[in-house]
Design a protein around this nucleic acid. Structure first.
Ligand SMILES: [Mn+2]
Ligand SMILES: [Mn+2]
Ligand SMILES: [Mn+2]
Ligand SMILES: [Mn+2]
Lengths: 223, 223
DNA sequence: TATTAAATTTAGACAAGTCTAAAATAGTAT
DNA sequence: ATACTATTTTAGACTTGTCTAAATTTAATA
């Protein structure tokens, strides 16, 4: 049906438009895909021919509903496989992205659904990213960045925006895992760095950069 | 490292030389790969350049030790994934081949080894084909065809030679599963069809064609 | 408005893998 | 030994995805 390359382009377009809204620039996509603008233009024509994107030369482009569905289907597979690797095969969360980048292209609807069932219909992957269900609908809303949250409010760490092994290892070093409940005790007026208290009363200082990449949800828990 | 296509060619060469021994003909490989002889010749040159096969124009070809290792590595992945699909995701044995045909090309040594451990270092896939271990060594010898076995001797069904869904469904219909212990009661002198008795004293008649595609081992069990 | 700069697209080329049709080789039969 | 046939290889072409360099369009600046 679609080549790996086409799927990767469609996924990249989806992810760029998630961040920047509106329509995406050829250059931005070229950077994301680690290729040249000319190659992107070539591919855009093909994707438009397949009705996966709307595209007018020089006027930008965006996903059609068919393209959006494909993007969500690939994301669903990517995230289910990541969770499988962590939960079932005991990989750590900083090792799984590159493998899922391959597994997301395996073509077998039955396999995806069986994997989904085996993992008990999970709502989020090991990085807290929501997993679309079999109808490609998100059942969970995305969480908010730690840097945008109020002080002294219980928060549960529910995801990360930066998926690089470097950042994921940083999180592990500071024992900030998904599910951990924390509290912003203080935001430094000078550099917006934060003093954080964990549920076990441990104190952690993190930079504003780090706080921008941690996703949280208000926690309404016992005490 | 290697493309999917190269891996598929190498695997096909391995499987052809397993059956026919010696060196393989361009035409035989073309048929196996569902392509044309000219395309095969093109690929043979590339595989020879990569030192995966020995190849002299017009003189046939065979795997180098490097090529054999690659073939075994791909087979290992194929068979581990097939077992995973059947044992863990509850697929039936006639559904898994095409999916494993894709999964066998996922490139991650760590993933293969983790999968191997998760499945508890299995020695055979759902069709009874032996799985090379992490050093690419077979720990089990291949079984023998039912049609070559002696009469009135307890035999355990340990594999099949034909992997087509048609044949696998035939086996299921006659309730001939892997592990089942059977006995050849009689071989018909006219068409070499067989009367078989199962451990539960059920009688099954099968054609010589079927008997050629069932693999068995002598069974030394509790009566 | 004219000029300049940035972004995007086209032109032309290349590698991988495939194909058909034609040429070369090996093997067999007279 | 010669002729025929089956097998294999080459020649030339096509598709996909990529690239560099040049041309085009849009946007920004003077
Ligand atoms: Mn990918
Ligand atoms: Mn993820
Ligand atoms: Mn394959
Ligand atoms: Mn098998």
């Amino acid at each position: 049906m679609n080549t790996f390359t086409e799927e990767n382009y469609i996924k990249a377009i989806y992810q760029l438009s998630e961040r920047n809204a509106a329509s995406i620039s050829t250059n931005a996509l070229a950077e994301q895909m680690n290729t040249r603008a000319a190659s992107v233009t070539d591919m855009l024509k093909k994707l438009a021919l397949k009705k996966l994107i709307n595209y007018q030369p020089y006027q930008g482009f965006n996903l059609t509903s068919k393209g959006r569905k494909l993007a969500l289907h690939v994301l669903r597979k990517h995230r289910l496989w990541e969770l499988f690797l962590v939960d079932t095969l005991n990989f750590s969360w900083d090792e799984v992205h590159d493998i899922a980048e391959q597994l997301e292209h395996i073509n077998s609807p039955k396999l995806v659904d069986r994997l989904d069932a085996f993992l008990d219909f999970p709502e989020a992957d090991p990085h807290g990213d929501p997993i679309p269900d079999e109808n490609l609908v998100f059942r969970t809303k995305r969480a908010q960045r730690l840097c945008d949250m109020k002080i002294l409010q219980p928060l549960r760490i529910s995801g990360v925006m930066d998926h690089s092994p470097l950042f994921l290892k940083f999180m592990a070093q500071h024992q900030l895992q998904l599910g951990e409940v924390i509290l912003i005790e203080d935001v430094n007026g000078y550099d917006a760095s934060m003093r954080i208290k964990t549920s076990s009363d441990r104190i952690v200082f993190i930079s504003a950069t780090a706080a921008q990449n941690i996703l949280t949800r208000p926690h309404h828990g016992s005490k």
